[in-house]
């Protein structure tokens, strides 16, 4: 197995996730795309852990999983709050930050 096959797979997943974050309008879908990005990072960590023969990558992959769980929890809570206030979770309607 090449190092690159994993890394490029991760890169592809990452870019698909980026596309999702940009293209999606529904907040839940954006959160799902972010999960794709986080997973691609994990693949990178584990590929390098194997390549370098070190355990550090595993440790950080686990940390990322935990952080992702926290992020989804808070993210969905935010989505719920937005939904409750505006009856919609379409992100393009949330343009209070317009300059």
């Amino acid at each position: 197995m090449l190092v690159n096959q994993f890394l490029i797979l991760a890169a592809v997943l990452f870019c698909i996730g980026v596309y999702g974050v940009i293209a999606r309008r529904n907040a839940v879908m954006v959160l799902m795309s972010i999960e794709l990005i986080l997973n691609s990072v994990n693949i990178n960590f584990l590929a390098f852990a194997l390549r370098n023969g070190s355990v550090d990558g595993h440790v950080f992959a686990l940390y990322i999983i935990a952080v992702a769980a926290a992020e989804v929890g808070v993210g969905l809570a935010l989505v719920l709050l937005v939904y409750r206030n505006r009856k919609s979770i379409a992100l393009d309607e949330l343009s209070e930050m317009k300059g």
């Binding site: 974050v21 992100l91 930050m97 317009k98 300059g99």
Partner: peptide, 21 residues
């Protein structure tokens, strides 16, 4: 600079994201 870049600041998160990436 802010005024010059104001059209970019649409307030749309997705466009910010596109620019960022």
């Amino acid at each position: 600079t802010g005024n010059a870049l104001r059209p970019v600041q649409s307030g749309k998160v997705s466009q910010y994201g596109a620019l960022l990436f």
